[in-house]
Design a binder for these strands. Structure first.
Lengths: 225, 225
DNA sequence: CTATTGTAAATTGGATCCAATATCCAGTAG
DNA sequence: CTACTGGATATTGGATCCAATTTACAATAG
């Protein structure tokens, strides 16, 4: 074999058109750019990406498997919407799993990771642009979680969060959620720095369930309009 | 509208060919009929079902999203295999979520449901055919879970179980797992009948983690061959 | 005027066709 | 004999075509 110095990129694992479309649609749904119940026309999406409908259909099939869209035979795909009960359950689920995840992560957390998390918490607290809050919030928590050694747990949490992110946004923006989140992040961070796993877990659970209550009651008032 | 008495089946929600293929492949993988690493040829599957490759590809895309198959660009799909660490993590995850689920289910469980669960436990204990153990085991547990009022939790548990079912089978069949399972089922059932939610949760966790240890050590000895 | 029927347009889902990539194997140079 | 090249074959992924279903709407009957 020749000792050729090339930055060889593995072409075989480059994203396919279907991957690109899947990711774009997923993000649009998670970010709330595509509203609940909005229908997704294969033709339209295909022309946006300059491909035929085949890769679009693959992307939609995958999104349906994730529960982000719902399709009815011969009628097409719409962005899935969640009932209040479903949203509440997702938060409960997150509280359960994220509590467990941070417990395992915190016991052996590195100073480096703590510094990273601190930076995100501060960036979150200082950010004036509400569009970036959700992203920084997610980065903060995931940084604390990432050394838990449980990739499957993280993946499941991530999928759960994907399904409620667009509702959460409302909670942060419209219900003074940021002020409280800021405080609670500080508490979680402090517990993590003290390597107090149980405390970090308890605070994380409370953080998630508090956001849930706030969001649910907000949505309940909205619903009556 | 005419008052016509017809057993009207909703044709619109009949399973599409893609659905049928997805379900068949999923079951084959979960039941272990398709082995780890086995490659799935689109053409072959298509001719088995007398369709073109298009619905097969949709089914495979959905299976990949579930993590049951893995595809490499232009190389095709193979049945995903899990490392020991991944298997162990799945059990941990199940212990966490199923513990929570049974806790909520047991507090208000009906006598009717308890009787059902008891029947499955007895059928499991009495069943001579090892091929049906896994199924009866699953029915027993799910019966106890079903009134927890948390459909998403159950769905996630179900997906996790799908991914490890074929390994679990080995644990039941090859490691005297049934004898222990029988006893542990009795304990869980007793706790449920006493409406002792915490006890039922603790026993369920122990049941799952015990099976995990047994399976992992079995797989470790296997691995050395 | 309302309810129903029939038809045209839009859309989805599957089949077939084609291009791109991988795999296998024979041929060839060293 | 071994290592590499080049082409045949197999397979995947996308484009195009077609059938089936839904939807919108006009025509018609009551």
């Amino acid at each position: 074999m020749m000792a050729l110095k090339l930055k060889a990129t593995n072409l075989g694992s480059m994203p396919s058109p279907a991957d690109v479309i899947f990711e774009a649609l997923r993000e649009a749904i998670v970010e709330g750019e595509l509203k609940d119940g909005e229908t997704l026309r294969q033709d339209h999406i295909a022309s946006l990406f300059n491909v035929s409908r085949i890769p679009v259909r693959e992307a939609l099939a995958r999104l349906e498997e994730q529960g982000l869209v719902t399709t009815q035979r011969h009628k097409g795909a719409v962005v899935s919407s969640l009932s209040l009960e479903e949203i509440a359950e997702m938060f409960e689920f997150r509280a359960l799993v994220e509590g467990e995840v941070i417990r395992h992560a915190v016991s052996g957390i590195s100073d480096r990771t703590l510094a990273e998390a601190k930076a995100f918490a501060e960036a979150f607290a200082a950010e004036p642009d509400s569009a970036r809050w959700a992203q920084l919030n997610r980065l903060f928590h995931y940084t604390l979680y990432k050394d838990c050694g449980r990739p499957y747990h993280l993946q499941v949490v991530s999928k759960a969060l994907d399904k409620i992110a667009r509702y959460l946004r409302a909670q942060l923006v419209l219900t003074h959620g940021i002020a409280r989140a800021r405080q609670e992040h500080e508490g979680i961070l402090r517990a993590a720095m003290a390597r107090d796993a149980d405390e970090a877990a308890a605070l994380t659970r409370a953080h998630i369930l508090g956001a849930s209550r706030s969001l649910i009651s907000f949505l309940q008032t909205q619903e009556k309009l």
